[in-house]
Design a binder for these strands. Structure first.
Length: 508
RNA sequence: GGCCCCAUCGUUUAGCGGCCUAGGACACCGCCCUCUCACGGCGGCAGCAGGGGUUCAAAUCCCCUUGGGGUCACCA
């Protein structure tokens, strides 16, 4: 059976480098943004910024059943929050508009017509059941799928099918050759001929499938490097076959280069599932990851800046990033490591920046109102630096700072704080009250407070610091763990501090 | 099952034939600092899946085994 078209892969792969590089991020708007998806966006973005090339953003919304506008908005939200900006595509436009596949139907129709005219795609009338039956009759394993038996249907045969009321799906004629490519992260990969059959690219109702539109858009938009998840690795030879068809039909000039990024694993040997809370990008934002920290950790999912530095900035990332250095091993999402990375970035923030990032978390915890009052702001200015190196995610600020925003009667002593009280708590508190009361309102500052308490409790009562200050800490905060004590007292002020200590003394 | 990918401390990663008695980070365990908790500092625990080759020399190259994962749709 001779085919009218070349049986070989004749299209060249892209050789683009530097500013000629064009990468893309093309999610389907289904569900919540997955950290693996965003990692993919990050690597594409970083590669574009590193090379000086173009980062394109396209939406693959050809599946009306599953796609949602809400999901689309969340993707925009995620990219915006992280600062992953794009040079071409949805919202910013470009030479290949539109950038949402749902708006490109007429373009696909044109391409389909060309590929049909060139003989690269052909009509297929067999139903799934019929294909199974043919395989069974021929003793051919069912798993092999379609047997390419309609490649050379005559016009009469087609007419006969149509007379039965059938509409044809369209399949790509896959060259009967081994298909090889050099994966940017995995090296040379070859799929032997016969690894997959001629596949459907257009439904009988005329609706084009992902198998067609993804490569078609990449070709039409001039994408030179396809960096995507490992799950698409085995569909790559199919796509190469399609690019080759488009090349032979004069639609495109090259096949992009491919790089398949490692999976993001959860616990054990399982892919991080959509059900796992840490798979949801917004889960991390809600906990109080800052973009710098999350981006840094996401980059570590398959890549590293250097052997001995795993805390880095976005600038350092883009300066160094190269797909060639991406690790092919599956990466495991390690929440503890991620938290540690985030904590390191939080510590690097300026005091002012850190403070402002805290606000939304204190608001959602109900500690402060929608608009920051002057008093609330003043407290935060003093208190934020006290916790900057004590938290790993911003949401931890609320429980730590809560006592500063509550009134004395709202302070509830936590159980584990009660349990650790020394026997002479009352004595310690009373002595502290006397010592603090001797300070003037104006002198009620960290250093003076410390001196007064030191001399009254450590020197005076002969208490160990640990024993002396623990009850005071609990007295003013209700907790066993708090920001530094003397600073906290200064923020509360003399009157409030004494009120709380008196209240606590009476309770003991 | 066919095809494809992957394999270094608990986790992640460095290592691209000799700098390796295998380095870092996170986690964990000590100690120091210290008003709690952190931060910071110091120290410790712990790994090349197994077997064959190639080579003067292998964690590094090749093959096999084992293990894990993916994919084989008229989803994306």
């Amino acid at each position: 059976m001779t085919s009218p078209i070349s049986a070989a892969i004749t299209a060249p792969f892209s050789t683009a480098t530097g500013a000629d590089v064009k990468v893309r991020f093309c999610p389907s708007p289904t569900g919540l943004p997955h950290v693996g998806l965003i990692r993919t966006a990050l690597f594409n973005w970083a590669y574009a910024r590193h090379t000086g090339g173009t980062f394109l953003f396209r939406i693959e919304d050809t599946d009306a059943e599953r796609d949602s506008e809400e999901s689309f908005e969340m993707i925009l939200d995620a990219l915006g929050w992280l600062g992953l900006n794009w040079d071409e595509g949805v919202g910013v436009g470009g030479p290949a508009e539109p950038y949402r596949q749902s708006e490109r139907k007429h373009i696909y129709e044109e391409i389909i017509a060309k590929l049909k005219a060139s003989g690269h795609i052909y009509e297929s009338y067999l139903t799934g059941e019929e294909i199974d039956a043919r395989n069974e009759a021929a003793g051919r394993p069912k798993q092999l799928g379609y047997d390419n038996s309609e490649r050379d249907l005559t016009e009469d045969q087609k007419a006969a099918y149509r007379a039965e009321g059938r509409s044809p799906a369209l399949r790509l004629r896959v060259p009967d050759v081994d298909i090889s490519f050099t994966d940017l992260v995995r090296g040379e990969i070859t799929f032997p001929t016969g690894s997959f059959p001629d596949f459907v690219v257009v439904r009988p109702n005329g609706q084009p499938l992902y198998t067609l539109v993804n490569p078609v858009d990449d070709a039409l938009m001039g994408v030179t490097h396809v960096l995507r998840g490992e799950d698409l690795l085995s569909s790559t030879p199919r796509q190469i076959a399609l690019y080759n068809a488009m090349y032979q039909a004069g639609i495109t000039q090259f096949i992009p280069q491919f790089g398949h990024l490692p999976y993001v694993m959860g616990e054990g040997t399982k892919k991080l599932s959509k059900r796992d809370p840490e798979a949801n990008l917004f889960h991390h934002r809600d906990r109080g990851f800052i973009p710098e920290g999350l981006l840094n950790y996401l980059a570590l999912l398959g890549w590293g800046l250097s052997a001995d530095q795993d805390i880095f900035t976005l600038d350092e990332l883009t300066a160094a990033f190269d797909v060639a250095n991406v690790n092919p091993n599956p990466a495991r999402f390690d929440q503890k490591k991620a938290d540690a990375i985030n904590a390191a970035h939080i510590r690097k923030l300026t005091a002012e920046d850190f403070k402002s990032r805290l606000v939304p978390y204190l608001q959602s915890a109900g500690l402060i109102g929608a608009s920051l009052t002057e008093a609330e702001d003043a407290i935060l200015t003093e208190a934020a630096p006290l916790i900057q190196e004590r938290i790993t995610v911003l949401s931890e600020a609320a429980p730590m700072l809560g006592f500063l925003y509550k009134s004395a009667n709202e302070i509830v002593v936590e159980d584990d704080a009660k349990a650790g009280m020394p026997a002479n708590t009352r004595q310690i508190i009373d002595a502290a009250i006397v010592a603090l009361d001797s300070l003037s309102e104006a002198d009620f500052k960290t250093e003076a407070i410390q001196e007064a308490l030191q001399s009254a409790l450590i020197d005076g009562l002969g208490e160990k610091p640990r024993n002396a200050f623990g009850p005071l800490r609990t007295g003013i905060s209700g907790r066993r763990i708090s920001p530094p004590l003397f600073e906290s007292m200064q923020i509360l002020g003399k009157a409030e501090t004494l009120t709380r200590l008196q209240q606590f003394a009476e309770a003991n």
